[in-house]
């Protein structure tokens, strides 16, 4: 039994030796200079979660922009996990990428990643979600607050057009930890209150369609005279619209239903009159913008920002309704 203990130590020891023996070989390659000539540039892109169509589009936009420059592209999928995010993004840095583009699952977990990149002198461009107060080189961000505001304006206008009898609206939020997405509902709530409406139900559907469906059903039982609903993302917006339909009401003419993201399911629903509107972000365009910023950073030049002080580059959001939905189809 004594040998078990020894062998445990031996395993650890072998690993340790292996590591310390190798550690000399790498010191040479630290501190890569920036301002590389194009041709042998590798761009590392750490993406939030490839299971979502939004990020699939973002990845496509980024990859195509990288390939158009004749650069190499390395993808890492964070799979909606902060541990995977930190481990994988740091691994990209270890693999010697020349620039890191990242759409962080948890912006607050960017610290150790950005710190490592700074140490290696690798520029970091953040794509959406948030920067977590780190010294990144640039962040491309959708204007979430503006989206929430546009949703409120459109909702108020449509309620008036429908001849809505009450001023009661419902606001369905994403999971409580999604602080940046929460700005959509915060801006919506503020704007809709300014227009004289009252948010009678505000609950988190945890970004899940199943939960949003139940919340909407319950909200309708509580206030049958609700005239509008805004959901933080499209799966929840479309689920709310389905709940409204199942309660025997119309999710456009009876209760104005607005989602966020312009996912295919929302576009389909708007086309069929099953959803009033959604707010389109342009993930592919955001991806292309990050690559442009990466090129500027690699050339050692100055980056062009929309907001110099926060190193922010804005990507506009667009209201999608039945009038312009055709542009977003396909």
């Amino acid at each position: 039994m004594k040998r078990t203990n020894l062998s445990t130590l031996a395993v650890a020891g072998v690993l340790a030796l292996g590591l310390s023996a190798c550690s000399d070989s790498t010191t040479a390659e630290g501190g890569k200079p920036s301002g590389k000539a194009s041709g042998d540039v590798t761009v590392g892109f750490s993406v939030y979660d490839m299971q979502y169509e939004f990020f699939q589009k973002m990845e496509k936009g980024t990859r195509e922009a990288v390939e158009a420059k004749g650069w190499k592209f390395k993808l890492h999928d964070e799979k909606s996990d902060e541990n995977e995010m930190v481990t994988g993004a740091q691994a990209l840095l270890d693999q010697g990428v020349d620039v890191l583009i990242i759409s962080p699952f948890k912006p607050d977990a960017l610290g150790p990643i950005v710190a490592k990149a700074k140490q290696k002198n690798i520029p970091v461009i953040i794509d959406d979600i948030g920067g977590g107060g780190t010294p990144y080189d640039a962040i491309v961000i959708s204007d979430n607050a503006d989206g929430g505001k546009q949703a409120a304006d459109y909702l108020a206008q449509q309620v008036a057009a429908n001849g809505g009898k009450s001023k009661k609206v419902v606001s369905i939020t994403c999971e409580p930890s999604a602080v940046y997405a929460a700005r959509r509902n915060q801006a919506f709530d503020q704007q809709i209150k300014d227009k004289g409406f009252q948010v009678v139900t505000e609950l988190s559907g945890n970004s899940k369609a199943e939960e949003a469906y139940k919340i909407m059903k319950d909200a309708l039982a509580k206030d049958p005279d609700v005239v509008g609903v805004f959901a933080c993302n499209d799966p929840m917006g479309v689920a709310a619209a389905n709940a409204i339909k199942d309660a025997g009401k119309d999710p456009v003419k009876g209760i104005v239903t607005v989602g966020f993201n312009a996912d295919p399911e929302a576009i389909t629903a708007i086309g069929k009159g099953g959803l009033s509107a959604t707010i389109a972000q342009d993930p592919a365009g955001m991806g292309a913008k990050t690559v442009e910023l990466a090129a500027q950073a690699l050339n050692g030049g100055k980056l062009t920002y929309d907001d110099e002080s926060k190193r922010e580059v804005f990507q506009k959001v667009t209201l999608v309704t039945k009038d312009n939905v055709a542009q977003f189809a396909g």
């Binding site: 899940k208 369609a209 199943e210 469906y213 799966p235 479309v238 689920a239 389905n242 709940a243 399911e265």
Partner: peptide
């Protein structure tokens, strides 16, 4: 039943 309510099938449902 869930797909009937939501009118969709998805790898994200039922978590």
């Amino acid at each position: 039943l869930i797909s009937s309510q939501l009118q969709k099938g998805s790898g994200q449902l039922g978590l």
